[in-house]
């Protein structure tokens, strides 16, 4: 669970959505429909059957013609948090769960419907839809029940979720499973995408020296390396290309992107990255 200071900072923030909400219940986000909110939208000529309470009497007096005042409709939006629970997430699981709680809290605070999906080996674990900040503890309980293990195919997991309403999808992953395919699928499902890439301290700055037999947490594949200065330099190059690849894939698909660096304290790093990502 997030700390009180973190929650108090999140309370003043709102998830930004480019697309207008549509099809949801009443909420706090502008929708494509006109409705009964206090925000003026447009005029149109009166037709019999319209609500006379919305007639603009001043316009009638001036033009001797009845006009109807239209107001914006405010609806809730659907936010789905996709959490990668593959074995590779184990050493940054705390950061990943905290990020999921934080964005979940933001969604709940904005009056949106929130659903969390744990992408795991086999059938994904899908939470119920939640509304309002009072659902935050349930979100935390759900996330605590998730355990990172096995090998995950994100797209396969996403296909296992039957109903993905139009809205926002936030993918929290380390990106080893391939981000492009996931983003392509979510865009196909009319999702406005955000990617939170989480890396551990070891991944950003490996403390290796000498001969090592590295075992992949997901597939058990072994790689023998001799970690010297040259190897670590090459690793930093490979990491940079990997991160740029994910970043580029997000930019190409108009998805917001933020990186959580395992070397930095979560709260500070998350808020800073969140602000830079354009998600709020």
């Amino acid at each position: 669970m997030l700390s009180d200071s973190m929650i108090s900072k999140l309370q003043n923030l709102t998830l930004l959505m480019r697309e207008r909400a549509s099809g949801g219940a009443g909420g706090a986000r502008r929708s494509r429909q006109t409705g009964s909110s206090s925000e003026f939208s447009d005029y149109r000529e009166y037709v019999p059957g319209d609500d006379l309470r919305r007639l603009d009497w001043h316009a009638l007096a001036r033009f001797d013609k009845p006009f109807l005042k239209l107001f914006m409709e405010e609806q809730e939006s659907a936010v789905t948090v996709w959490l990668d629970t593959s074995a590779s997430m184990a050493d940054k699981w705390e950061s990943a769960v905290s990020a999921a709680e934080a964005v979940g809290y933001l969604a709940l605070g904005a009056g949106d419907r929130l659903q969390t999906v744990a992408l795991r080996e086999g059938t994904p674990l899908v939470s119920p839809w939640w509304n309002g900040r009072h659902s935050y503890p349930r979100l935390c309980s759900f996330l605590e029940s998730c355990v990172p293990s096995g090998e995950t195919d994100p797209v396969k997991g996403m296909r296992g979720v039957e109903r993905i309403p139009r809205g926002m999808s936030i993918l929290i992953t380390d990106g080893y499973g391939g981000t492009e395919a996931s983003l392509d699928y979510l865009r196909y499902r009319k999702q406005e995408c955000c990617v939170i890439q989480v890396l551990s301290t070891f991944e950003t700055e490996p403390d290796l020296n000498g001969d090592w037999k590295l075992r992949d947490a997901e597939n058990g594949q072994e790689t023998r390396i001799t970690a010297d200065r040259e190897t670590l330099r090459l690793y930093q190059g490979a990491l940079e290309r990997f991160l740029n690849g994910t970043r580029g894939a997000c930019r190409k698909r108009e998805a917001a992107y933020m990186l959580l660096d395992g070397r930095k304290p979560f709260e500070e790093d998350f808020l800073k990255a969140l602000a830079g990502s354009g998600m709020i």
Binding site: Y176, F202, E203, G210, Y235
Partner: peptide
């Protein structure tokens, strides 16, 4: 001679790239 010490890592994806590059 010194053997390779085993160590679990989240992914060997980047390390394999390093080896290919080497």
């Amino acid at each position: 001679r010194r053997r390779h010490m085993p160590r679990g890592v989240p992914s060997t994806l980047l390390w394999q790239e390093v080896i290919r590059e080497q």
